[in-house]
Nucleic acid binder design. Sequence first.
DNA 1: GTGCTCTTTCCTGCTT
DNA 2: CAAGCAGGAAAGAGCA
Length: 273
Amino acid sequence: MSLTSTTTLDSQLTATWGPANTYPDVSMVMSGYPGRLWPQESQPQFWSKYQVWEWLQQVMDMHQIDASSIPFQNFDIDGHQLCSLSYQDFIRAAGSVGQILFHSISELKWSGQCHVEIGQLEIKPENFSCPFPEVSYPPEIYDPLIHSLAPAVSPTPSSPDIKRSYSRPHQVKKHNPRGTHLWEFIRDILLNPERNPGLIKWEDRTEGVFRFLKSEAVAQLWGKKKNNSSMTYEKLSRAMRYYYKRGILERVDGRRLVYKFGKNARGWRESEK
DNA sequence: GTGCTCTTTCCTGCTT
DNA sequence: CAAGCAGGAAAGAGCA
């Protein structure tokens, strides 16, 4: 894929996706896994100036925008001040990029509020009521592409507790070397249609049958997440085929780009929300 | 260092 | 013919 198309894809995605994937995985919630995010770290209003700059850098990287194209000195502010900026303020401070920044920070503020709710609540499925209740992961381990917008990924270098808490052996026993598995990545794209710009769609929601609409774009996203610019649908599909043996996916014969979740796939059913 | 898991990469042959 | 599928083989990478 060319740089241009990648950029377009990124823009397209970031326009529709956001770092709202900041809620606990349902499976973890179900198993009593406690909230792991430090609520303050996830809320931009608590960021330091340094974290604000980190976030800026992330957004610029995400959109492949030259960092020199915006005056960083206009963002020599802390998170509290950042959150109080209006849309017009962002436009004044960063020109056309301000729109992207405003969108990003709006979503972060929103997801940050969600963290507070989560932190305040005892996390149980019945009172878990975020606006995007579908299964998703805290940003340090999951984010289909938009990962780079989530503050906990990089703008929180001073919060080792996030990683530390995640490695507590009694909480995650399953070997999960790279945080998110491919099938979970796919699942979460499906479960967040408002942030899924026509990449994959359900063919049969109740049966767990889905189809890739933009196979190479999904592969690019997966590659981006894994820091692998050479990812292709061919390679991705090989990994998908390995899931057949493990019962995570089932074969759908005769239909191209169509897969079906198997008995060992969790979290895709509506009833599991 | 070793073994395990989960990919990633490459490949050949087949199907649509 | 191109794109996708199937699956073997080997290697890479993170983790216990």
